[in-house]
């Protein structure tokens, strides 16, 4: 791509100088104005060649109100999970705004743990119209892989991910988990037993239509919270209060695709509304003081959020768990307002 850009630039520069020289000769009235003509021509060449387009992709030259394009190489589907190697700080994806919806992702591993030990996963596709969050059970084997497969397959399965039934969806994910965790014949005894026992995760998947109708399918205590433009809680699903969270939520299991207890709810978003899809620890914390915390976490910067959640988890005010949040906001609310 770079060579194409510079080839175009070279041809354009030569052509511009040539055209300017001919114009000065043919139109004597240009007189001493010829440098301005040539400068204008060079700017046009630069625009055509993509030099300014590169600057646009950095975000520095985006005019107010303009919408950012998906990152280069994007297939329209975004997975957010702790990277395989340890990194300092949270994994926070930039806001993603492609029209109707704006999405934002936050994921933090447990306070004091490496990022690679994060067993939560989230995924977004179709410009925010498909969103999923899963929380792998801490005491289970390869639960990070299990939660990642669940969210990836939910958002990657087409506009109606569960149209073939819940069990079929989990079964396909479970088969993928078996493939990922397959062992060599001489594997250690603990790995053989752990793989035999399988893995567990809670899950929330949301589909949002072009008209703002949304549907959430949940197993366990990953939660979907809906707010209006002012940040007021409109609904919380499947749990509504902190005291409803327990240590034994229903879970999707690799060894028993029929085991999870699926709950479903529907709603409708209007401009300014937001959906928060959160793993249990954060959902519990948000629901303790929804009036303040939901609008705060919707609007705060990533560093600010990380600092506060670290503090809350270190002090015990929030359970020290992996944290994952996807915020989907009805984007027209901001530009309309």
């Amino acid at each position: 791509m770079t060579s194409v850009t510079y080839d175009r630039l070279g041809v354009g520069v030569i052509a511009t100088i040539g055209v300017t020289a001919i114009a000065v000769l043919v139109v004597p009235s240009l007189g001493t104005d010829w440098p301005f003509v040539m400068a204008a021509g060079l700017v046009l060449v630069a625009l055509r060649s993509g030099i300014l387009a590169v600057r646009t992709a950095t975000g520095r030259t985006v005019p107010p109100g303009a919408r950012r394009r998906p990152a280069a190489g994007s297939s329209g589907q975004h997975h957010h999970r702790a990277p395989a190697t340890s990194t300092a700080g949270p994994v926070v994806a930039p806001s993603h705004d492609t029209g109707l919806l704006t999405t934002r992702v936050l994921t933090l591993s447990k306070h004091g743990a490496d990022e690679c030990e994060n067993e939560d996963a989230s995924a977004i596709a179709r410009d925010g119209h498909l969103v999923a969050v899963a929380d792998g059970a801490s005491s289970a084997y390869a639960s990070g892989e299990w939660s990642r497969l669940l969210v990836e397959r939910f958002v990657g399965a087409g506009p109606a991910p569960l149209s073939d039934g819940h069990e079929g969806f989990v079964e396909a994910c479970a088969q993928a988990w078996q493939d990922v965790t397959a062992l060599e014949p001489d594997a250690d005894w603990w790995a053989v037993e752990a793989q035999r026992r399988g893995s567990y995760a809670t899950f929330a998947g949301v589909t949002i239509s072009e008209s703002g109708e949304w549907e959430a399918s949940v197993v366990g205590d990953c939660c979907v919270l809906a707010t209006d433009a002012g940040g007021e809680l409109l609904s919380a699903f499947p749990l509504e209060r902190p005291e409803q969270f327990t240590s034994t939520p229903s879970m999707l299991q690799t060894n028993d695709p029929a085991a999870g207890l699926w709950c479903r709810t529907v709603g409708h978003m209007v401009p300014g509304d937001a959906l928060f899809v959160a793993s249990d620890g954060l959902a519990e914390w948000l629901l303790a003081e929804p009036g303040d915390r939901l609008s705060w976490i919707r609007d705060a910067g990533a560093t600010q959020i990380e600092a506060r959640l670290d503090q809350e988890r270190a002090s015990g005010a929030m359970v020290n768990d992996d944290v994952t949040l996807v915020v989907v906001r009805h984007g027209r609310g901001e530009s309309d307002g």
Partner: peptide
Amino acid sequence: FELVQRCTKAIGEP
């Protein structure tokens, strides 16, 4: 045996 299994969490890791 159960305690060890509880601590077996990641693929390829003791």
